[in-house]
Amino acid sequence: MMKNIFIQGNNDFVSQFLEFLGERFMFSCTVGVSIAEFLNEQLGLTQDYIDKRITTIFIDGKPVDNITTAFIRPRAILALSGAMPGLVGATLRTKSPLASFRKTITSHNENQHLKKRKGIIWIKLFNVLIKELGPLFLKKGIIVSSKSMQRFLLSHVTIFWKGCTAIMVDNISMNSQSFRERDFKSGKVFLKVTSEA
């Protein structure tokens, strides 16, 4: 059974958890939808933000040009990035004028036949989007391995936890000392981290 962890703290404290987003993490959502629908409706991002800030998108390692026709399958890997430098960085951008340079690896609207249902996908956030979208994902809750959770807890000294105002594990409150010492064993944990209102 996956443990549910809820943590609340000040902004500085919460921002430290962005470290979890440096590598891929799992996210529970509705799959069988387009990337546009996922970003707009499930994450609540505006079209303007998507157009201006999420300029490079990959689905299962394939660059995406049209987010309304690229669909998300269960266990898909969705990677989101800001605009990148370099010829190849520019080539990989959504709707890049250089798209023909990478036509053999471009996403070609696979998975449109899938039905909508609940599922788990992998998310990768890169560069400027870690700070911009990271808190949103942490607030909605991400799924991480117990091992990486344990590693994170052990790597942060006592002073770090002073910014923490609440911790709950499976709806039971606990203090930071007990939380740090807790053995989450193997498997996954569902982690929600929010800043104080």
Partner: peptide
């Protein structure tokens, strides 16, 4: 933004993701 914050190596994750 990207270059000042992370330098040219900001590309590593992206190019890796592209399988290139």
């Amino acid at each position: 933004e990207a270059l000042p914050a992370y330098g040219t190596n900001v590309l590593a994750n992206i190019i890796n993701e592209a399988g290139a």
